[in-house]
C-alpha cells in the first residue's frame, strides 16, 4: 500500500496542473487567475504536508483535524461565490449602460446614415439583430 501523502500529492498536483494549463491557455482573465493559482499552491502544499493540518488544528483546539480544511474550504467557496455575483452585477450594469449608449449613438447617427445614397431608415445589418438576454 502506498503512503497516503502520495495520493494527496497526486491529487494536489493534478488540480494545480489543470489550473496552470487553463491560465497558460488564456482561458482565465488575470485577476481570476491569481485567485486560482493561489488556490492551487495551497492545495499542493497541503497535499505534500498533510501533517500541517494536524498541527494547526491542534493549536486551534479542533478535536477532529480533517474538518479544518473542509470548513476553511467551504468558507472560501462562499466568499468566491459572493465575489462572483458582485462581479456579475458590475458587468450587468456595464452591459446595460453600454446597450443604452449604443442605441443612443445609433439614433444620433441615423440622419447621417439616411443621407447616404441607397440607405434604408433603420435597416439592420445581420450582426445587429436584437437578442434577448434577460
Amino acid at each position: 500500500m502506498i503512503p497516503y501523502q502520495w495520493t494527496t500529492a497526486i491529487i494536489g498536483f493534478l488540480i494545480a496542473g489543470s489550473i496552470l494549463f487553463l491560465v497558460r491557455r488564456d482561458h482565465m482573465h488575470g485577476p481570476y487567475a491569481v485567485w486560482w493559482l493561489a488556490s492551487s499552491a495551497v492545495v499542493v502544499l497541503i497535499s505534500l504536508f498533510p501533517g500541517f493540518i494536524n498541527l494547526v488544528a491542534g493549536r486551534l483546539g479542533i478535536a477532529y483535524p480533517p474538518i479544518l480544511p473542509v470548513f476553511v474550504g467551504m468558507g472560501l467557496i462562499l466568499i468566491k461565490m459572493l465575489t462572483m455575483d458582485l462581479e456579475r452585477s458590475r458587468q450587468e450594469l456595464k452591459l446595460r449602460r453600454l446597450t443604452q449608449r449604443l442605441a443612443m449613438l445609433e439614433a444620433t447617427l441615423e440622419p447621417v446614415r439616411n443621407a447616404e445614397p441607397d440607405s434604408k431608415p433603420g435597416a439592420d445589418t445581420p450582426e445587429e439583430k436584437p437578442v434577448s438576454a434577460r
Binding site: R96, Q100, A103, E106, G122, E128, A133, R134
Partner: peptide
Amino acid sequence: HVARENGAEVLSLVIQLGAWGATQTGLRY
C-alpha cells in the same frame, strides 16, 4: 418600422432591457 412610419424617433436596443431599462434609455437620450 411602425414607429418610424408614424413619425417617431426610434432608439433600438440590441439586448432586451425590460420596460424600465428602455424607459431609462429614453430619459438618457
